[in-house]
């Protein structure tokens, strides 16, 4: 994704980059420092810096790598400031700054681990959906709250409790072993489907966005787990439903309501 300097770098463009890249950066930062809150804050700060810097300097050739590297520096700064953080840093020192100084190097994709943490069966279904949208989808707490028609404060508390449980109960940050994979994968697929369904039943402006987010999550999962037929099945399912979604509420001849743009992905092997 290369943006030429003459292209207008504005807040909406950076917003789109945020939606595309923040999940990967948050996942990388959690892998780096082991703390969801520190990771989230650091990635937010990195995007705030981007909002100030990119309009003048242009978008770097690898915006995601730039964000991750910048966020990692912010996280290190923050961790140095408190004692517990310094202990944490000692443990992660060996991993620090594997990339070049201004990013650009390949960032290992930790999103798969993060999906399995967010969708751990020890969390309630609502908690899994909310945390997945927040951490992997890059939705704000307000957006997640709107999507599920709850007050922002309620959603904020739900997210805080969920993260507290992950920390207190030590829900692991890893892809499950083979023998646990089927059950755990089912939980991940259920979350994707719940996100999609929430989009279908949300008549408001958040509806289409949630459907798109579910499809994006299914695509990411399919990229990360190319050998799992269940994942391809879920991607095909949401793509096929998506191609018919417009006709659910419209009295048009069915054949005219398929959205051909999404059908090929749904039927490809």
């Amino acid at each position: 994704m290369h943006h030429t300097p003459d292209r207008a770098v504005d807040a909406p463009l950076i917003g789109r980059i945020f939606r595309e890249e923040s999940g990967r950066s948050v996942a990388a930062l959690i892998a780096f420092c082991g703390d969801i809150d520190v990771a989230e804050d650091a990635v937010q700060e990195a995007f705030a810096i981007a909002l100030r810097r990119w309009p003048e300097a242009g978008v770097p050739p690898n915006p995601g790598g730039w964000i991750t590297t910048t966020a990692r520096k912010r996280a290190i700064d923050r961790l140095r400031r408190d004692a517990r953080g310094r202990d944490l840093l000692g443990e992660v020192a060996a991993l620090a700054e594997p990339d070049g100084p201004e990013g650009g190097g390949t960032v290992p994709d930790d999103r798969l681990r993060l999906i399995f943490t967010c969708c751990h069966p020890a969390l309630s279904a609502e908690a899994r959906v909310a945390l997945t949208l927040r951490l992997l989808g890059g939705l704000s707490t307000a957006e997640v709250a709107r999507a599920f028609l709850v007050a922002e404060l309620t959603m904020a508390q739900r997210l805080v409790r969920t993260k507290r449980k992950i920390k207190a109960a030590r829900i692991p940050y890893r892809v499950p072993e083979d023998e646990e994979l089927p059950q755990r994968l089912r939980s991940v697929l259920a979350v994707i489907y719940l996100v999609y369904n929430a989009g279908v039943h949300n008549a408001g402006i958040a509806g289409p966005g949630l459907c798109a987010e579910a499809i994006r999550l299914a695509r990411i999962l399919s990229e990360l787990m190319p050998d799992e037929p269940e994942v391809d099945g879920m991607l095909a399912l949401v793509l096929l439903i998506e191609s018919r979604r417009a006709s659910r509420t419209r009295a048009t001849a069915p054949s005219r309501c398929w959205t051909s743009r999404t059908v090929p992905g749904g039927t490809a092997p």
Binding site: A122, R161, R164, K165, A168, A169
Partner: peptide, 8 residues
């Protein structure tokens, strides 16, 4: 113990 909602 941690809060009850950390239970599984």
């Amino acid at each position: 113990l941690h809060e009850a909602d950390t239970a599984t």
